[in-house]
Every structure is written in C-alpha cells, then in structure tokens.
Design a protein around this nucleic acid. Structure first.
Lengths: 359, 359
DNA sequence: TTGTACGCGTTATCAT
DNA sequence: ATGATAACGCGTACAA
C-alpha cells in the first residue's frame, strides 16, 4: 500500500515546491497557466483529490459552514413544517454566501453532544431549543458566533448570542380575543411540551424542574391576557400538554378536553400541528367545526389553509425567520454590527371559528 | 490582544503536558479524576473552548459528517416534500451513528462548487442529481465514499459510488395501464425538467445536449410501454416539460395540454407536485376531476392523499429511501460490503381517475 | 499515570 | 513567478 497522495507528493512529481502546487489550486493567478495545467494533470494522474479540507480549514481558520441545532431528533425536525420552512429560509440566505449547513444530531435525551463538539463550523444556529438543553450548553461552550431562534439563552462564557423571534404573546392575545369577541367563554388549551420534563396531561405551572420554553410561556401568557381581560378566570381554563408537536398528539390532547361533562366551545391550540389534530378529534366525536367547536392554531403552516375547515390561526413569517437568523449569524461571523430581530405575528381568520352554538 | 488559547496554554497553566490535557478531553479514563477536574477548571478559567475540531479531524482522519448534494438550490429542496422526506430518512439513520449532515450549496447554475471542495466530510450522498452536473463532478473528484440516489453516475476516478433507486419504469407502466384499463386513449403527459438544459414547453427527445435524468427517462419509458402495448401511438402523445418541480409549474404545463382543440381525457404527471398543479389547472377551466379529466401523479407525497380529489399515484418509500441511502453510505465508509438497493414503486388508486366521459 | 517526539496537510510570509 | 520556512492545533505511539 503506497503512502497517501498529498500536495508534497504532487510537488515532488512535478519538480516544483509545495507552495506552487497549493497555488495551482487556491490562487490560480499566482501561476503560469501552463505550469498550472501541468500540475493539475500530474495531480490527476497521481490520484490527488485536491487540498484536504480539514487541513485547509485548520490553516485558514474558517470552516465555510454553520451548525444547526434542533430541539428534537433530527428525523423529527423534517416532520415539522415550521422547522422545514425555517430551514428553507436559512438555506436561501446561506447559499449566496457559500456556507454549508451542518445539521447536528443532538437528541434531547443524550447528555453528550459529540456532534456539536466536533463540528467544523464558523458559528451556530439554534432553533427553538430552550435554555438548559445539554446540546445547547455544548454549543455555547464552543464560544463561536451563535444565534438562537425563539428561545433566548442566558449569556454564557462566549460572545453574546444573537436572537430572532416573534411576538408570541401578542399573537396569542389576538387569537384568544378573536374567540372572545365571537362570544366564547368556555375554552380549552392544547399545548406542546412546556419544558424538557416531557410531561403529558393536565398542565400545572408548578412542579417543573426545568425552565419552561419561552414560546410556550409567552403564548399561554397571551391567552391569559385576553381571557382575564374578558373576565374569564385563567387558572381554571383547562390546559392539556402533549408532545411531540404532531397531529397525533393534538388529537390525543383534545380527547382529554372534550370527553368531559361540560366540554369547551372553543379550543386554542398552541401550534397548527396540534390544531390539525384537534380537528380530527372533533370529527372523531361527530362534532362540527366551527358549529359545535371552534378551533384555532398558531404558525400558519401551509396545511392550515388546506385543512377542512381552513384554520383560523396566527401567522408568523417562518421562511423569513430562517433568512433573518442566517443573516444575523453571518453578520456576527463577519464581526459586523448586529441587532436582535423581532418578527410580527398576525391573526388570520379563516373558517374554523364561529360563535358558540349556545352561549 | 493575547494569543489564542490552545491545549498548550492550558497545559502550561496547569503545569502538565499537552498530552495530559488532550486526554482530559478525549480519553477521560487515562487520567486521575481530580487532575482531570483541575484541568477542566483551569481550561474554563482560561476560556479554552475545547479541542479544535479542524485540527482533531485532520489528525484523526475522520470528519464525523457526510455531505449532501441536491439537484436544485438548497432553498428549493426544502420546498419539495419528496426531498424533505428523503432527508428525514437520512437523518433517522444518521443520528444513531452520530454523523452530522452537511447540506451543500451547489446551485446547478454555478460551475464551481467550493462548498463541495471544502466540505469536511467522510462521504457524500447525492440526491437526484443527473450525471453531468458540475457539483456532482466535484463530489466524484473528492474520491470519497459516495452514494447516488435515483441517478446513477458513470464511475469516476474514485471508488465506485453506491446507488439507491426505485423501479420507476414499472411504476409508470402500472399507472399508465390503470388509465388505459379505465378506457382512456387520449392522454397527455406533464414532466419535470428532463435534462440540465432547462427547457420548457413541448418535449422533443432530440436536441438535448446534456444527458437526460434517469428518473425522467424511465418514467416516460414506462408510460410508453403501456401505451404502446395498448395500441396508442407513443410519439404522438403530447408531452410538456416544465420546471422546477412545483405545483405552479404543473399548473402551467397542464394549460398547454388543455387549451387545444381536442384535449386529453387524462393527464399523467411525472410527480405529485406537478399533478397537484394539473388539478388546479382543471379547476381553473371548470373541468371536473375525474369526471372530465383523470389525473395521476408519482411519488405519493402526503399532500397527494389530502388533495381534492385524492390523487391516484405511484407510491415510493421516500423516507425509507433516505434511510437506505444513509445506511449504504455508512457501510461504504466503514468498508463494509455493500450492494445496490432497489426499492418498490406501487400503484395507489384513489379518486382522481375514472373512465372517460366520452370514449 | 504522565511526558516526549513526531507527523497530520495545508497556507502565509517573506525572500528570491 | 517560484521557493523555503514556519506555523496552524492536535493525537498517538512509545517510553518513563
């Protein structure tokens, strides 16, 4: 077995210095064109695959890629339309800058995050990962430029992370008020996991060991704002927690809300995915939406508009969120001045909401 | 400005050798636990971010990540449900192995593919990229373990690429035969780009400078098999080419097929996305599906079942394709024996097809 | 359990 | 236009 082919091998074969071969690849203008051709030719004959990216990255101090961390298993992320749209935005903004996107495996369960430690990247994008997740700590420990999305983090040892988010509370307030304006007073709430504790069932704000997710907290607070202002006792509104953020989970959570003596006339779901599940649960029980039950979501993923009936929800600019996050990170990496980005969240009224049958 | 903190800095501060500090991070069992704690403590005080991944990767010869190349701009890939499901499968299979997924920016337009050249990876996954694309050449030049999906490539200078695909021809034949069995004889075809030439409009097999995509070629061949066998003259069936693979493109392509004197009673779309667009084009013209027009797709993405009417199509196991591709690549990287993987493609009859109104 | 010595493959700098 | 030299930061025999 012969030794691995490197710049030196090629240099020796051509009879020039390593530097010249390097230039042939990385700075074509520093070279006589025909010498360059000769070098490339010999390299091809020798089976040289080009400058080693790891060595190159080590020497130059740049990686040409950014790492992405998700709050769930990677396979799941591609199941969540909101995450996919975010990724789309990131890709759109990153492509012109020629940066690769390194998706990191960091399941919430595993305390270690070897993928994060070994990632050859210039910075990190952290999507919707509440402070306290082990993978997030590993990211912060890398002390690289970092942007968190949706969930702000306590500043760590490294540079202060950038942040991109929306006004979840105002959005939630708007959709809850919409329901109240229609006349609803008996409402229920379906929420995704509120903290890494992985609880299911009746939500009880007390007793969480881990810090809650900002998004969950804010959306619930927005609902509370509106309901309280309308005289509906907020602790008293039934809230069911389920995960992950899927249609199936929404269906299950709605069951707990619906199968009681005096069911709500409207259900606020904290995400569209969950709301889609609530729609199914209503159908399971022969309940007409919005006749017997009004249902609202949050996010406005494409499926929301296509649902039957089309979902009243809160729109957030998901793709733009990805673009903004990527731009912010690129600015951070280039040491350009940056600022926090807050995107809007607007109520979108469609056909899944109507006045309650019996007020 | 002080010098950058490295293993050596920490070693000096603690009064041990570099090796020991390295072990503290990478081989905890080679160390007295309390010495390790002291080292880690000093490292934290010094602001040491841990072993540099580029240097580590250079030294060990492994990257812990695989590169992914797409046939379209990255931003677009997240728009294509089939691509997203593929990614989901890849992520599922890659996560247990702790491999990162490096999504590479390589727009078909750009002849250079710097992202590919600089990718610190152990292998490549190439999704649906026809031989001849510049980015693909760059991948092959890296001479790393590679798996191509859907489109086989001519063996290059490096190791022979693995391949994962489905029996597109059989699937296409089945769906075309289904239409023929229903009594259709006047059909039209809508296809995605057949080659990198980026043509739109009436398809003419001649005159392409670039090699055609295998998938497109095979699916058309499958249609031809069935139609010819039923006595329908294949060159004679109108075929319209559009791109990219989107609902909008399908709508536009269908218009060209429908707005003629003697329109087809059925349209075979080469992908579900395009078929969904055909459905829209039919609605635009007040044509009932399947009453006035039968429509078929290919892929069976989730939206196909949810369409109005639900789409008759050919199912391919998209997520499984991703898993298989990732497993194959991992095997290749580990120098385990591998084989080509062929997945099934099955006809799924739903409500978008029926006998023609007037035979 | 800890230290020594060397090499991983490249690019920046400066000289020629 | 080309070459010599010195980092870049780390892992791993091997010896102690």
């Amino acid at each position: 077995m012969s030794r691995r082919v490197t710049l030196q091998t090629v240099a020796d074969a051509v009879g020039v210095s390593r530097t010249t071969v390097s230039n042939a690849y990385s700075r074509p203008d520093q070279l006589a064109p025909d010498l360059r051709r000769r070098i490339l030719g010999v390299a091809a004959d020798l089976g040289y695959a080009g400058p080693d990216p790891a060595a190159r990255s080590l020497r130059r101090g740049r990686a040409g890629a950014v790492g992405l961390l998700f709050n769930e298993a990677l396979g799941y992320a591609f199941t969540d339309p909101a995450a996919v749209m975010f990724l789309q935005g990131v890709a759109e903004a990153g492509e012109p800058a020629h940066v690769g996107l390194l998706l990191l495996p960091a399941p919430p369960g595993a305390p270690e995050a070897p993928g994060v430690r070994d990632a050859v990247v210039d910075g990190f994008l952290v999507y919707s990962v509440p402070d306290g997740y082990p993978g997030l700590r590993a990211v912060l420990d890398r002390r690289l430029p970092t942007v968190t999305v949706d969930e702000p983090v306590a500043p760590g040892p490294g540079p202060a992370p950038g942040f991109v988010g929306i006004d979840d509370r105002a959005g939630a307030r708007a959709v809850a008020r919409h329901l109240l304006d229609l006349g609803h007073r008996r409402v229920g709430v379906v929420t995704d996991r509120m903290a890494p504790d992985d609880r299911r069932g009746r939500y009880d704000p007390a007793g969480y060991r881990e810090a809650p997710s900002r998004v969950g907290h804010e959306r619930l607070a927005g609902y509370a704002d509106a309901l309280t202002a309308a005289g509906v006792a907020w602790p008293g509104v039934p809230i069911v927690e389920e995960f992950p953020n899927t249609v199936a989970a929404g269906r299950a959570a709605a069951a707990a809300l619906l199968d009681v003596a005096d069911p709500p006339t409207a259900i606020l779901a904290i995400t569209d995915q969950l709301a889609l599940g609530v729609l199914l649960a209503a159908r399971d029980r022969g309940l007409a939406v919005p006749g017997d039950l009004s249902v609202t979501g949050f996010d406005d993923v494409p499926a929301a508009a296509l649902a039957d009936p089309p979902l009243t929800t809160v729109r957030q600019p998901l793709v733009e969120k990805g673009r903004a996050a990527a731009r912010l990170l690129l600015d951070l990496i280039a040491e350009r001045p940056t600022r926090r980005v807050d995107l809007p969240a607007d109520l979108v009224v469609r056909a899944s909401t109507a006045p309650p049958r019996s007020p």
